[in-house]
Design a protein around this nucleic acid. Structure first.
Lengths: 332, 332
DNA sequence: TTGTATGCGTTATCAC
DNA sequence: GTGATAACGCATACAA
């Protein structure tokens, strides 16, 4: 693979000059520039980004850590980030943390070791302290879907508690008083918050929260199905089933249908996230909108502002969820 | 950020020794090794992967190019690749090509410039010639979902034509004789192949292919909806609707339901890909299984074999699709 | 077993 | 405007 040196020889100029025409950061005469361009083309020269990074101490890339590479949620997030960064001619480097502390740390190490100019992290397993410490380092870091007071200006998050509150309140206002709830993993902050919001809404309407009608899922379809089966077996009647995310709501819907329970006639079903598919399933799922794509975009803007000094971006740190009522809920 | 030099000074040894204990590739006495480890810990030393790459000419990472970062198809593919590579302690660098020639080339350039040790490409817009040429370069490249005869051993692909054939044949065997078809973008190879398979099956059963009952979609839900509306307007009856992928089938299902047309009672619906969601929608979608996750895994194995000399992997180059009959199809 | 010296492909700071 | 040349942080052949 041709190097800058080869180009300089062929063009009959110095290394420095070749570098200059590549980066257009200094005056080079029209004539020599042309010679260099020709030489580059002739050799099929491609700059070695690794060497560039080492020498310049910047890589024009931002690292992204997500829990999983699949799934509608992370997909939207990655797309939102990438789209914004691409317009700024920055690249993304993606790693997966799999919601495990060791892997999340390893992923972060990897991204730092690759000398990303900034990091966008969706982490769930590492501690607040670790993150606070990390942020003190010399590489700009922004957290997505996580709020830590001490480093609030590094956080782009959704008010999950409010979302949980809205979801349940919407049902309460439709007259529902008997609730079942399928939560996310209790160790995940967002799952906790959403449940808290659910409970707050219940309290506000003087409906007692029933622990026996709460099931802890893992945010996947299958656990939504299992949870629903479990809840139905409790033989305590409920008219509304709130799920902590759309995937589990989908699993729930499948089981309800199998058991001949009609949605929303017999049971109203509420999801969370508003993943793209939720509007295509039947009945169309009522849910809470999580503007993850915009948040990804915002995180990308944050990095542009803090790393690449594009000061024109206004950053929204906390996003507010909104209820989307479709066909899976009705008044009781 | 501490460098290897700082560590060597603190530990009172040479640069080379520090390098040795990092890479464990040469004998170092227990004692000095310990000193070095301590120094590294004390300084919070992290090796600079960029510098390592430059010096050693390998990066322990493989580059992946996908069309989009979102969507169930690419999500599964990326996950499959990453899972396999992680067990081999290799990292993954992902870029998006957005099915546009310029962006795909740019993405490839990026990955090469980052000195990935190998590339796994899902490209749709670049030409065969370009790829053949690319493969001649010094970096190992494997293509996923694309078959080019000249470089067949670099391809991991599905027999899309056969999939299309199976899909339609399954319906024909159930007695259907009036078909409508929603295809993918006609410039995409896999869309062409699937359509060909569809036509072959029809021919085999002496059913004439009707151009007026074919709609070209873009593989997205929305186009499935649009296509279905269009086909219905043709007022030429059909009992079976074959979609070139599951997302479009989902869009189709939504429209059919809105128009009061029952699936499968009035119209049988067939998808393609067997995305995870297809088993959770109602009625459960009959489809053609595209083992994209395993194919991703296989592509990863290919790179391990060709780049990192892990010869133990047996590579399957062409995967065979299989029909999955669920609830959206029935005999006529 | 350990140290020295050189090179990897660029950028950037000087001079001229 | 252009050309030497010293970094950048590490790996590695060669010595010791």
């Amino acid at each position: 693979m041709a190097t800058i040196y080869d180009v300089s020889v062929l063009a009959g100029v110095s290394l420095a000059t070749v570098s200059r025409v590549m980066n257009k950061n200094a005056k080079v005469s029209e004539k020599t520039a042309q010679k260099v361009q020709d030489a580059m083309k002739q050799l099929g020269y491609r700059p070695n980004a690794i060497a560039q990074s080492l020498a310049s101490n910047r890589s024009n890339s931002v690292g992204i850590l997500v829990s999983e590479l699949h799934g509608p949620f992370y997909g939207s997030m990655m797309s939102g980030i990438e789209a914004e960064l691409r317009t700024a001619e920055k690249h993304v480097i993606i790693a997966a943390g799999h919601s495990e502390e060791a892997l999340e740390k390893e992923g972060i190490e990897f991204l730092i070791s690759r000398r990303c100019d900034a990091l966008i992290l969706h982490v769930e397993a590492v501690s607040d302290e670790y993150l606070v410490e990390l942020v003190k380092g010399d590489i700009p870091i922004v957290l997505i879907n996580r709020y830590i007071a001490e480093i609030a200006d590094h956080c782009i998050s959704l008010n999950n508690e409010l979302g949980g509150y809205y979801a349940t309140k919407a049902l309460l206002e439709k007259g529902h008083r008997q609730f079942a709830y399928i939560s996310g993993p209790s160790w995940k902050m967002d799952a906790q918050e959403r449940l808290k919001g659910h409970q707050r809404a219940l309290k506000e309407f003087n409906v007692s929260y029933n622990d026996a009608l709460t099931y802890e899922g893992d945010y996947q379809e299958t656990s939504g199905s299992q949870g629903t089966s479990y809840l139905l077996e409790q033989s305590r009647p409920f008219t509304a089933l709130v799920c902590a995310n759309d995937e589990m709501a989908l699993g729930a819907m499948t089981v309800l249908r199998e058991k001949g329970i009609r949605v929303p006639d017999d049971i109203s079903l509420m999801g969370f996230d508003n993943i793209f598919f939720s509007q295509f399933i039947h009945p169309k799922l009522s849910t809470v909108d999580y503007p993850i794509k915009q948040m990804g975009k915002m995180a990308a803007c944050w990095t542009l502002k803090h790393t690449f000094n594009q000061a024109e971006h206004d950053i929204t740190h906390i996003f507010t969820p909104s209820v989307v009522i479709r066909d899976s809920t009705q008044a009781v």
